[in-house]
């Protein structure tokens, strides 16, 4: 069996007296598509923040590609190959769409010292991949909500990650737009990118995930085959009540 790409063990995070995450264990192997679900306040975003380095976990360990990430800054984790997109798009508003992608190319891809890429060509390729071809010179303010989400994913992809954490990339989108983003995430996975998708839209989660992880009140209550997990009585109770 291959060693896991991401290995989380006993991860815990508190905010004062509130336990946001408790003893989370999670193993992700290269190329997997994982769905992470849970009711609001269950700790999904806190887990993403702890994995990506925005927050520091108080207990437990996070290993990525065999490297211990504890104490490592977010930008260093991105350089290692762990990228994330944000729940609410956070574009660099004074920069054009193409310049938004240049930042991770300059600061991650070139900083790895594995040779320089042709920045305009790479930006055009990424924009084509997410369906924003020809929009590189526009400012993000001119993009629609779904285009903004695509830019968010393209920027995360520009760092050439091995693992992408997509935090509610479909929230607030129409049926067709959800399908667009879903197809995009599947296409990225086809290119070899491991993806953890955090989502509330069950249609998308079930269509995407090879494995489903459920968080409730900061604890992992299920982890396995999506069809089996959603029939788990504890998961049903968490979503539908007693």
């Amino acid at each position: 069996m291959n060693p896991p790409l991401l290995d989380v063990s006993g991860l815990g995070k508190r905010f004062g007296g509130f336990v946001a995450l408790e003893a989370i264990d999670l193993r992700v192997t290269e190329g997997e598509r994982i769905g992470l679900i849970g009711p609001n306040g269950s700790g999904k975003s806190t887990l993403v923040n702890c994995l990506s380095g925005t927050l520091r976990n108080e207990t437990g360990q996070v290993r990525f590609a065999g490297r211990l990430l504890d104490g490592m800054a977010a930008h260093q984790r991105t350089r290692l190959g762990l990228a994330r997109s944000f729940q609410l798009p956070r574009p660099f508003r004074s920069l054009t769409v193409a310049e938004n992608l240049q930042i991770p190319i300059e600061y991650v891809v070139h900083a790895r010292g594995e040779g320089r890429v042709d920045v305009p060509a790479r930006c055009a390729e990424l924009l084509g991949l997410v369906g924003l071809a020809g929009r590189g010179e526009e400012l993000p303010a001119g993009l629609t909500q779904v285009e903004m989400r695509k830019l968010e994913l393209a920027r995360a992809m520009a760092a050439e990650p091995r693992l992408l954490i997509a935090d509610e990339a479909m929230a607030g989108l129409s049926h067709q737009e959800v399908d667009d983003i879903l197809a995009l995430l599947l296409a990225l996975n086809d290119r070899g990118v491991t993806i953890i998708m955090i989502e509330h839209i069950m249609r998308a989660v079930m269509g995407f995930s090879q494995r489903l992880v459920v968080l409730v009140a900061g604890r992992k209550i299920a982890d396995g085959n999506p069809e089996e997990v959603i029939r788990n009585p504890e998961v049903e109770r968490a979503y539908l009540g007693e």
Binding site: H75, S94, R155
Partner: peptide, 14 residues
């Protein structure tokens, strides 16, 4: 200047 959190996530050593 535009978004420090996003900059850090994009690999910028803020």
């Amino acid at each position: 200047r535009d978004d420090e959190l996003a900059a850090e996530a994009a690999g910028v050593p803020t």
